[in-house]
């Protein structure tokens, strides 16, 4: 397939995933602040930090409160990662590969965009929860339509790889920011708030119910284990990397455990790190350090995907590879 087309499919999936994550973060946070009125205002700055755009936010708005955080994260056109900007970018990418994706995918994405566009023009948001649910549903519908209307060939794998890398990045950021805010709040330990706060973290990753089934009681370490290392929960970092690897192997045609280029090599290394990681080691190493290094590696991986597959001038250069003997 054309490199340009692969690039667009990869990014349009990343953008949709990003929009969905931001919607879920806000929704979970909103819900939580209604339960804890006193500390409500404290909870919006960490949310901004989760997205990684706190510097831009400080420049545009200064101190965070509910109104400006939502404006910034949802509608602000000057924020390239606002939901509005993401969906617009996803649609622009889809427009440039409209002949490659299915009509159903395009129509879903276009309707999604028109919905956000209409909401952006409205004065007030009466039912924020419904709005965010609509966004998440639109994203889920897009994924479902993609799965059931598009060939599961190279292009589809590029899209899924993009989605998985984006999701791994967002879950690890969420954990990184929230864990350290929640931990020191010893005052809450054993109080109902404790459960509410940690529950909100899980809800931010749509993980609350599945965590309950897997581990039962709320326990910070087990939450880390679940969001980071679980191989079955679809938003856990480990699961994302496993799935990205499958797509990568399908794209390059490399057998499992081998690599055809630098991007595949670094994804493989990251995967084996997660395959053999244990919670004990992670906490010994330092959770923050571990998450930080994971994010750096995911970023580097994204850059490698960009040069190996999408940059036309590099296509002729032979890259180092290794296959099983």
């Amino acid at each position: 397939m054309l490199s340009r087309v692969a690039n667009s499919i990869y990014w349009l999936n990343r953008y949709i995933e990003r929009a969905e994550n931001v919607a879920r973060f806000i929704d979970a946070n909103y819900d939580m602040t209604l339960d804890i009125p006193d500390s409500a205002s404290d909870q919006w700055q960490p949310l901004i930090n989760t997205t990684g755009d706190h510097e831009l936010f400080a420049k545009l708005y200064g101190e965070a409160n509910r109104e400006n955080a939502i404006e910034f994260l949802v509608f602000d056109r000057d924020n390239p990662n606002s939901i509005h900007s993401c969906v617009r970018a996803a649609r622009e990418n889809a427009r440039s590969v409209r002949e490659y994706i299915s009509s159903e995918m395009w129509e879903q994405l276009n309707t999604f965009y028109l919905m956000i566009n209409t909401a952006a023009k409205e004065e007030s948001m009466d039912l924020p929860h419904q709005f965010f649910v609509d966004i998440m549903t639109a994203s889920h519908a897009f994924i479902g339509i993609t799965d059931s209307t598009m060939n599961h060939g190279e292009g589809w794998h590029f899209g899924r790889m993009g989605r998985m890398l984006e999701r791994a990045d967002k879950t690890s950021r969420l954990l990184d920011v929230k864990y350290f805010i929640l931990l020191p709040s010893v005052d809450y330990i054993g109080s109902p708030y404790d459960n509410i706060l940690w529950g909100a973290l899980l809800r931010s990753a749509s993980a609350f119910e599945m965590y309950r089934k897997r581990h039962g009681r709320i326990d910070p370490k087990k939450i880390v284990d679940f969001l980071l290392l679980d191989a079955n929960f679809p938003r856990a970092v480990h699961y994302c990397i496993v799935t990205a690897m499958i797509s990568m192997n399908n794209i390059t045609g490399s057998p499992r455990g081998t690599f055809a280029n630098k991007a595949e090599q670094s994804l493989g290394r990251l995967l084996s790190e997660f395959n053999f990681a244990s919670l004990e080691d992670i906490f010994e190493h330092g959770l923050h350090e571990y998450l930080d290094s994971t994010q750096t590696r995911i970023n580097a991986l994204g850059a490698a995907v960009q040069t190996e597959f999408f940059s036309p001038q590099d296509i002729d250069s032979t890259t180092e590879s290794r296959t099983l003997e």
Partner: peptide, 17 residues
Amino acid sequence: HSFLSQQMGVPLVEGGD
């Protein structure tokens, strides 16, 4: 352009491709 290439099932290219 995109409609016709989609309906024919052939790639849509730009000069840079």
